[in-house]
């Protein structure tokens, strides 16, 4: 029963949302809108679960004295945001916004900027023309990079045209094949989910 009811619910909602694609009737549109709203609200609850899990995992680790100072800082950071939002609100020039703009955003973007260095290191250590395929990859990357380097050389114009052609045709078509593959895969998985053949989302039997 624990698995039967969710499977019936999944089938019903899947069928309704599939059929609404083919209907413009007022009732159909209203049902569609209501389900979409419900979906967003339930999704918001899943985010709360994530936050509570984060707190639980951290508290367990703190009690076991694993990386204690760092985890305490993380927890304090987490608690400080709702605390500030509760006291001063979240609008412009609030402490909440200050924390986001001067603590979170600079750190997040700097962590992301570190990738520039790892890309550079990987280019030196791993980007080798070991085979024909690797050489093609290397060649395409070098043409793209050179064409976007603003070099004041006579062939720049042709290089840009070549880079655009590579992007628009051979590169695009490979990406298109991947997209079609993903599309067909998603389509069949969705069908399997609705029909109850694919049940991994139910988790283990409990």
């Amino acid at each position: 029963m624990n698995r039967q009811i969710p499977l019936i619910v999944c089938f019903s909602f899947g069928l309704v949302m599939f059929l609404q694609y083919f209907s413009n009737h007022t009732i159909s549109r209203s049902v569609n809108l209501a389900i979409l709203d419900y979906w967003q609200i339930i999704f918001a609850f899943t985010l709360i679960i994530g936050v509570v899990s984060f707190i639980k995992v951290n508290l367990t680790k703190i009690s076991r004295r694993i990386d204690r100072p760092y985890l305490i800082v993380g927890l304090l950071g987490m608690i400080s945001m709702p605390f500030m939002a509760l006291i001063w609100g979240i609008k412009a020039d609030s402490p909440f916004m200050w924390m986001f703009e001067n603590v979170q955003a600079p750190m997040a973007s700097t962590v992301f900027a570190l990738l520039a260095f790892f890309v550079a290191s990987a280019s030196f250590r791993g980007f080798r023309a070991r085979s024909l395929q690797a050489s093609i990859l290397l060649g395409a990357a070098l043409i793209i990079l050179l064409s976007r380097s603003n070099l004041p050389l006579p062939y720049t114009e042709h290089l840009s045209e070549l880079a655009d052609w590579i992007r628009n045709y051979p590169s695009m078509t490979a990406r298109r094949a991947i997209l079609i593959g993903i599309g067909l895969g998603s389509l069949t998985t969705s069908l399997r989910v609705i029909l109850g053949i694919e049940r991994t989302w139910l988790g283990g039997e409990r």
């Binding site: 909602f13 599939f18 389509l187 609705i194």
Partner: peptide, 25 residues
């Protein structure tokens, strides 16, 4: 908790079928 998950998974799958077929393929 499997019931709300079923709502989300089912709705997502139902929406995805025509979209993946038409817009992506």
């Amino acid at each position: 908790s499997r019931i709300p998950i079923a709502v989300m998974i089912g709705s997502g799958a139902g929406i995805a079928i025509p979209t993946m077929l038409y817009n992506r393929t």
